[in-house]
Design a protein around this nucleic acid. Structure first.
Lengths: 209, 209
DNA sequence: ATTATCTATAGATCTATAGATAATGC
DNA sequence: ATTATCTATAGATCTATAGATAATGC
């Protein structure tokens, strides 16, 4: 069975690769990647140094993949939890509020985000793509009155990262409340009335699937 | 004259130190500092490698000083230009709008900010301290209706950095207009009516001193 | 005499590869 | 037979220091 052979090989290969990505994610969460050697990462992944170059051309390559991997996991988790919420305003607010909740259940990803620079995060298909979709939907539905969607997204992305940064630096604060307030402010900024912004931002979040 | 002696020595010493800081700022603007060796920075400053350790304990120390130095210059430049503007809302909007204009006259600082992570920038007394003052003044004057000033500042800081990031990645766009729109959205978010937010955000900026 | 600077370098570390070894499929 | 992995290492690079040199003030 040639398929099996390929599978067996590829499975082991994929395991090695994933171990490296996992180790890179941990490293990025701890130190932002600065000062971590390829050798140290491979050691952490329990993988020979030589194997590293079998999968990645170098450290930047691995880090790019690791960031994309974490963002994808993050995005899927948010999507799962917001499934069934149709109002784009409520989705947007829910995304902000859930990000902080997830900071507690996925601390590794959030610390990695805090150590990253803004451009690296917004590029891919993680948070930014989802927010873009929600803003556009909300505009099309007449729910948001926004002069320029690009600027609205810029505010959104920057604010969310700054909120996570705040969370990283003040672990004691009531982050649920903070995220709720931010969601409310953002909805108001996007055109909802103060009362409606507050109402939508305080709706119960869907139960975890 | 012992004073002169100290002065002469200290002047030369300060020149060496400043050359290193300047070189560090350039390096941070170009590459974010990753992969730049102490030797390369000292070379760029036209300073012997040994002298470096006479002024700084290591690369992180130098980079910290360089970031603070740039933020201080930036903050002073904004302050100069906004001198005489008394309305905190107008000051806040002016700060956002001027930041982008300054991106064209001080590109080095702005590129450095784009390569930095959020936490490093908000810590010191640069943009963040000024925004904090304006928000607090505006709340005290009843001009802003904000639930939580900490969250408002979080949005502000993140949005501004994201705007600079946008500017760095899209050099062709009309950044003046983008900054005006963002200022308008932020003022509205802080409680001004849509009409007033638009009005304040479009007031003529003071002529350069 | 004092101080800052410079050059040269020791020692550490890091990257990337070469060659050997082990696992798998045929 | 093929492929991925491992170990070991060559070569490059980087940090930090030691010792020599030059500038300044007394």
């Amino acid at each position: 069975m040639p398929a099996l052979r390929r599978n067996r090989f590829e499975r082991r290969r994929a395991e090695t690769r994933q171990a490296l990505v996992r180790a890179a994610r941990q490293t990025l969460a701890e130190s932002g990647g600065a000062g971590a050697s390829v050798h140290a990462i491979a050691e952490r992944a329990d993988v020979g140094l030589g194997s590293f170059y079998n999968h990645f051309t170098g450290k930047p390559d691995l880090f790019d993949v690791a960031v994309a991997d974490a963002l994808e996991e993050y995005g899927q988790a948010v999507d799962e939890r917001l499934h069934g919420v149709d109002d784009p305003a409520e989705r947007l607010a829910g995304g902000v509020r859930l990000s902080v909740r997830m900071a507690e259940s996925y601390p590794e990803i959030m610390q990695m985000l805090c150590h990253s620079q803004l451009g690296r995060i917004c590029g891919g298909g993680g948070l930014a793509a989802r927010a873009k979709r929600d803003v556009e939907e909300g505009m099309a539905a007449g729910r948001f009155t926004v002069v320029d969607p690009v600027i609205a997204l810029t505010v959104l992305n920057g604010s969310l990262l700054a909120l996570l940064e705040l969370w990283c630096n003040q672990p004691g604060a009531d982050s649920d409340q903070a995220a709720g307030i931010m969601a409310e402010m953002i909805l108001h900024m996007l055109g909802l009335s103060p009362d409606e912004a507050r109402d939508v931002a305080r709706r119960a979040l869907p139960a975890t699937v």
